[in-house]
Amino acid sequence: MSLKSSLLVVCLVSAVVLAGCSSVPSSTTQTNAPAGETGDQSAGETTGEAWTVTITRIVDGDTVEFEYRNGTQETARLLGVDTPEVHTANDPEEFEGVPNDESGATCLRDWGHKASEFARSELADEQVTISFDPNEGPRDRYDRLLVYIRDDGKSFNYQLVKQGYARVYDSKFEQRERFYSAESEAQQEKVGLWACRDGSGGSGSSQTTDGSSGTTGLTIAQIHADAEGNDHENLNDEYIVLRNSGNDALDISGWTVSDEADHTYRVPSGTSLESGARVTLYTGSGSDSESELYWGSDGAVWNNGDDTITVRNASDDVVLRKEYSG
């Protein structure tokens, strides 16, 4: 074999070997991570490679969609955690100690929505750092990337467990002992979904479907979901009206109003309704008053067809739920 031919063979073999060395998904290798960005090695939540991405959509508490700097989009499943389902039925047996009955399933569904809203408030439209775990493959069976998310220097995966929004998803990920320790503490303190163990974390008897609440006197007096013209261009013609049908004044400071898609509005501090008083919650922007509140949303919230209005008090208990259809 000539020297020229030998060099050619060596080059080809080298190219094949190098091509087989990368276990990172092809879309990930195209992200051009900033120089020096290697994640938090001390937390043990990276293989040494990390990427800055933008969260574009919250699917639920443990699943998000994001975009790399080059515009490539992906779906990611958060490593090591499992939040209650919101799109399918929950199996209470997966959550240690939660009653395996309708009350347990209902309580978990409620906490699934809370986990989704927590993820939305912390991650939506944010630039975060994602990284992989050396003990796990890059993707699950649904072709979702398996990642850790770090936001403002904190592990979001870990926060889900610590604050009771998720259980630990048993696998071989490196941080499992740390996560199990946080889960054990949350269980002992009945934090978050673990309050479902004794029935104190669910919606209980305060949940209604007729637009009234026997425990607070709050009712939904009117729903105007279909704004004139394009709903997204006429936001203040989309509104709901809340009424205090009780005999006493009702302080609704810090209460939340949400739809089925987990868009959530929080009532400003100092907001109170006298007996018989009404307040209109407009989807768009404006100046709040005793009788008018403004969501400040940049898009329509309420479906013109079927939707559900859920009101929670400052302790995050459901006090009113109203289903409607167009």
Score class of each variant (00 low, 15 high):
Ser2Phe: 10
Ser2Leu: 02
Ser2Ile: 01
Leu7Asn: 12
Leu7Gln: 07
Leu8Pro: 03
Val10Leu: 15
Leu12Asn: 01
Val13Leu: 15
Ala15Gly: 00
Val16Asp: 05
Val16Lys: 01
Val16Gly: 03
Val17Phe: 15
Leu18Met: 13
Ala19Asn: 10
Ala19Arg: 08
Gly20Lys: 12
Ser22Met: 04
Ser23Cys: 02
Thr28Gly: 00
Thr28Lys: 06
Asn32Pro: 02
Asn32Thr: 06
Ala35Pro: 01
Gly36Trp: 04
Thr38Val: 14
Gly39Gln: 05
Gln41Gly: 04
Gln41His: 05
Gly44Tyr: 01
Gly44Trp: 00
Thr47Trp: 01
Glu49Ser: 00
Glu49Trp: 00
Ala50Leu: 03
Trp51Thr: 05
Thr54Phe: 09
Thr56Ala: 07
Thr56Tyr: 03
Arg57Pro: 06
Ile58Lys: 07
Asp60Ala: 10
Gly61Cys: 09
Gly61Gln: 10
Asp62Gln: 02
Glu65Gln: 11
Phe66Ser: 08
Glu67Pro: 06
Gln73Asn: 11
Glu74Tyr: 09
Glu74Trp: 08
Thr75Gln: 15
Ala76Pro: 11
Arg77Cys: 11
His87Ser: 12
Ala89Gln: 13
Asp91Leu: 13
Pro92Leu: 07
Glu93Phe: 09
Asn100Asp: 15
Glu102Val: 13
Ser103Phe: 07
Gly112Glu: 01
Lys114Phe: 14
Phe118Gln: 13
Arg120Thr: 14
Asp125Met: 09
Val128Asp: 04
Ser131Leu: 01
Glu136Tyr: 05
Pro138Cys: 05
Pro138Asn: 07
Pro138Ile: 00
Asp140Cys: 05
Val147Asn: 10
Val147Cys: 05
Asp151Lys: 15
Asp152Met: 03
Asn157Val: 02
Asn157Phe: 08
Tyr158Arg: 15
Tyr158Asn: 04
Lys162Ala: 15
Arg167Tyr: 04
Asp170Cys: 03
Ser171Thr: 10
Arg176His: 10
Glu177Phe: 05
Ala182Tyr: 06
Ser184His: 12
Glu189Val: 06
Val191Tyr: 01
Val191Arg: 05
Leu193Trp: 08
Asp198Pro: 14
Asp198Val: 10
Ser200Lys: 13
Gly201Ala: 08
Gly204Val: 13
Gln207Ala: 15
Gly211Asp: 04
Thr215Asp: 09
Thr215Gln: 06
Leu218Val: 09
Ile220Thr: 14
Ala225Tyr: 06
Ala225Asp: 08
Asp226Asn: 13
Ala227Leu: 00
Asp231Ile: 04
Asn236Gln: 00
Asn236Arg: 12
Asp237Glu: 07
Ile240Pro: 09
Val241Pro: 11
Leu242Gln: 00
Arg243Asn: 14
Asn247Trp: 03
Asp248Pro: 03
Gly254Gln: 10
Thr256His: 10
Glu260Tyr: 12
Thr264Pro: 01
Thr264Asn: 05
Val267Cys: 10
Gly270Arg: 09
Ser272Phe: 03
Glu274Ser: 14
Arg278Ile: 07
Arg278Lys: 14
Val279Lys: 11
Thr280His: 04
Leu281Met: 02
Asp288Ile: 07
Asp288Asn: 15
Trp295Asp: 09
Gly296Leu: 02
Asp298Ser: 15
Asn303Leu: 02
Asp306Ile: 10
Val311Thr: 12
Ser315Ile: 00
Asp317Ser: 10
Leu320Thr: 07
Arg321Asp: 02
Glu323Leu: 08
Tyr324His: 05
Ser325Tyr: 11
